[in-house]
Amino acid sequence: MAQEKVLEINQLKTYFHTKRGIGKVVDGIDLTLHKGETLGIVGESGCGKSMTSLSVLQLVPDPGKIVEGSVRLNNEELVGKSEKQMRNIRGNQISMIFQEPMTSLNPVISVGEQIAETIREHQGLNRKQAFQKSIEMLKLVGIPSPEKRAKQEPFQLSGGMRQRVMIAMALACNPEVLIADEPTTALDVTIQSQILKLMKNLQKKLKMGIIFITHDLGVVAETCDRVAVMYAGEIVEYSTTEELFRHPKHPYTKGLLQSLPKLYEDQEELQAMEGSIPSPFKEHQGCKFTDRCPIAEDSCHQIHPDLKMSSDHSYQVRCLFYQEEKELTKGMSSV
């Protein structure tokens, strides 16, 4: 892949130090985002996907802290930068949109002003110019009569429109990286498909890299070029979307795909994964998935597997059995 790297995350660890102990919420993540590509991070609640993205912007809430690792934007290290330096990056080079468009906009400030203030902060335009630009941004994200809408407050807009506003706000300073944290989860499906299309179009136009965080494998299949599957703070599988859906390798990925009800197929029973995600406070010696893994053996309880790269560098899997494809598929039907 001779693509230009925009964002590189290496061995990122974000821990929460609490009275209950140390919560290893993000536990050694490696990711690379290229220019113009969409990288999906998928996993169930509590797997650390959102904290990974907040760590990139150093917005991890207390008592969470980045304890190790590096985050590089165009080869420039972000970990260790001052709050002031980070502020210049947030909303400017790296933007973020969140899950709940209802609560993510300030209820008492007009949407135009909420976009304009970002522009003023980073581009030094005056009030009038910035407001004008915010109207242009609203037009860009497909909001009808943007001049009128810019002066309205969030409660006067529908959920879909608010998410469009969030996107307009995030893209106002033409960022190189957009982090979208479950951007369509709170929306109805027809609105979701509108928003996904919009994001795709804007990505083509603005050439940004997108990190797309979601729990919805359908959305992943539709939007992402490459995917990282997270489990208990770690990446367990990392490959192209094509490879992931056609040949899932990690037992967890397989389990996830199998437990989904199919839209165009009858199933008598779903292949449910037993158990639930382990607490981030739990100490693991071996693989974190052993408790729920259908193919786990004694060695899995002892050895913590590394994220190993395939020989052709097309995917990575964190499983002791990954090279032995036959071993991996034992006891599981193919997907």
Binding site: S158, G160, M161, D188, V189, T190, I191, Q192, S193, Q194, L196, K197, D216, L217, G218, V219, V220, A221, E222, T223, T241, E242, F245, R246, L257, L260, K262, L263, Y264
Partner: peptide, 20 residues
């Protein structure tokens, strides 16, 4: 409009615009 986690399902595109 439903995104399907299956690369082989060809979806017929009917786009509806606007809000409810």
């Amino acid at each position: 409009a439903i995104p399907v986690p299956d690369l082989d399902v060809a979806r017929k595109e009917i786009e509806i615009t606007g809000d409810v």
